[in-house]
Design a protein around this nucleic acid. Sequence first.
RNA 1: GGCCAGGUGGCAGAGUGGCGAUGCAGCGGACUGCAAAUCCGUGGACGCCGGUUCAAUUCCGGCCCUGGCCUCCA
Length: 467
Amino acid sequence: MISLHNTLGGERQPFVPGDADRVTMYVCGPTVYGPAHIGNARPAVVFDVLARLLRRRYRLVYASNITDVDDKINQAAAEQGVPIAAVAQRWIRTWREDMAGLGVLAPDRQPLATEHVPQMISLVKSLLKSGHAYEAEGHVLFRVGAYAAYGELSGRNRDEQIAGARVEVAPYKEDPADFVLWKPSSDELPGWESPWGRGRPGWHLECSAMAREHLGDTIDIHGGGRDLIFPHHENEIAQSRCGHGAPLARYWMHNGMIRMGKSKMAKSRGNILTIRELRGKIPGEVLRLALLSARYRDPLEWTDELVATSRQRLDRLYRVLLDCAEDSREGGTPSPPGGSARTAEPSPELVRALEDDLNTPAALSVLAGEARKLRAGAVEPVAGAAALKAGGFLMGILQADPVQWFTAVESGPELTAEEIAARIGERARQRDVGDYAAADRIRDELAGRGVILEDGPQGTTWRRAAL
RNA sequence: GGCCAGGUGGCAGAGUGGCGAUGCAGCGGACUGCAAAUCCGUGGACGCCGGUUCAAUUCCGGCCCUGGCCUCCA
């Protein structure tokens, strides 16, 4: 049984799908106006693991949107003097590359906001018709006062919000808490014809319309960052519920924030690390493991140490896989039927950990235990390695060829395999004559360039170093 | 100020009403060139104050601290 922490209600609940033949999940995706940072990657990675887990039991339709119409995109285009669509396209491409680099499987649906404007307009129409929205100075606003349950997700009530008083109160709002569904566009801005004139949708509206279009009125799981609970998800709930009468989602899941030096990583704070720059020097799989090293609901502080530790954990796991591959090659053990990683089953302990509200740290611990047993020879290497890889697959790690893992050069002006071999040969001669000082100099030099040497009974091998 | 999450060993981070995960670092050992890498083994913890209980890090209450949200935000 899968249990999930539901923000709506604030407790862990058994997951019971509305329809086991069509489980639906929607996760808020990026607004494409610049490079995504590692914090943006957390929900994508976390819910990718959940998608993999759900697919073991159910048929899943997983949708994650891309917001390609937004004032920030317009602003970026104006600043750079390029067409708005060019900005969006460029960063959509980057986002997809980044996600692939982190081992995130493409969602079943990846709707673009600009391709769902008619659905948004029709949602606004029904909200107007039912009195949950009103027109004011070319805008259409949601009338928060008309929805009594407003605030149930975030645990706020309207009085508290008014007391907050930091909300900017546009003069045309009936109530400070009201939010924009549709706003007018000038000629230079992207816009669509609507009953309220040429305009563009408000951000909250997009997700309601796209989720409904692709997944139906009520979806099973709605995910996103914790910072979206209010107002984004609260507003989505209000729009959808008032628009078609059904609850938007049955389970709401929110991931914690990535922190950089004690505060949330955010573009507005300027403390971001983009996925692109990180991937330039660190394998995507290491980044992924780092993101999964804490429970998804908790905050995670991003540090060099976290990255280094993650790299070492992965190295250790791959080393076992490498040894297993060598053992079976030497021993001539034929691969048992069904022994491939694709068909092997992950261990029940690992599945149990993941099904317990996505306890990835515990799952990682299970993996480490399995690796230890394999190394100790307590498990048959081929089947054991296959099970290890199957568990890795659920978390989106450990799918690379172990030899490649240790020898692949990530980036920068690195040494070629030939150059490394030449240096190793030179060092071997020095060691033969007993000139260890010179040999160590070569070893240290290579270490400084990201190559670690290992002297074994069969001679010297090398692998790339952690950072 | 309001709402919501947390506070576990040197660090990261699970979990549990009584048998103290896991990773990194440290320490000991094996191997080795009294090297590096690797492998094996190992000590160490539950914010504070009360309460419930035979027994609490784990349940309850209060306090302190940290972070998030209340404006765009993964």
